[in-house]
Design a protein around this nucleic acid. Structure first.
Lengths: 143, 143
DNA sequence: TTAGTTGCAAATCGTTTGCATCAAG
DNA sequence: CTTGATGCAAACGATTTGCAACTAA
């Protein structure tokens, strides 16, 4: 079974919650997503598969996914939250083009190491982080 | 004249906008703030000095400050935006305690250098960035 | 005198919630 | 059966906006 399905199942039984076909549909479509998706966008895609699913359920389900540890939420400059999962897709940071909105993902172990150093210095225990670099991508800067 | 006042003045004349005593009041109180402040919090403080200033003006003025380059906006996990200025207080990153909400600021040139490296690799032109480390501070982890 | 500025309230946008109904176990 | 899951619409909190009155230049 997919690790994410297992995570969800575990969380549900731990909290004495129930599974449902709607949750399965939302999970399936969420995992198909490569990058970031907003609740609204996910709702649109989910609707095509099962039009009886309301947006409130999408929000409630994304919250559940986060609690179960299979989704992460971030907010960039804009107001709405963006969600992403870890399936085939572990932690990374973001380069964000302010002109076209393109998001490039990257990893950098050197930066992570420096973060640890800083945390030690401030006696801080890091559980997560986010690093976002804003600017213009190659396409947009050549225009 | 304070650099920030100059920045604002320049921006106003460049865009053919006007100054006003309300804008001056808001700027003065905003610059007295050491760290981050929300629009609502700023509005509360501003009201004490001039109760005729409405919250819409605070929002409009913060937007103006950002455009003029003297304020920055971020959103942490929560929904509302936080504003900060550069007066006595240039760029830095944040350590955020998830338990008590404490925010510690830090700088790290090594990380900045690595960011440049990443940008070059992706042919990206960085204009700004944000790095936030989430976790628990020393006080909260010893509780 | 001519725009830009402002307060107020209404509108908006993303998100959450109360409630009655439905369905999983 | 019992209790959690869900749709719907109303409620919400942060932010924006239309409009008429106000004010800087």
């Amino acid at each position: 079974m997919l690790k994410e399905k297992q995570l969800l199942k575990n969380y549900l039984s731990e909290k004495n919650l129930r599974g449902s076909s709607k949750r399965n549909t939302i999970l399936k479509i969420f995992l198909e997503e490569e990058g970031h998706i907003t609740a609204e966008e996910l709702y649109q895609k989910v609707s095509k598969e099962d039009s009886s699913i309301g947006i409130a359920t999408v929000y409630r389900t994304l919250k559940l996914f986060r609690e179960a540890g299979l989704a992460r939420m971030s907010r960039f400059e804009k107001g709405e939250a963006q969600y992403e999962h870890n399936y085939l897709h572990s932690h990374h940071d973001h380069l964000i083009c302010m002109k076209c909105g393109k998001i490039i993902e990257f990893k950098n172990p050197d930066i992570e190491e420096n973060q640890e150093k800083i945390a030690r210095k401030h006696k801080f225990k890091i559980t997560s982080h986010r690093l976002e670099l804003y600017g213009t991508c190659s396409k947009c800067s050549s225009k």
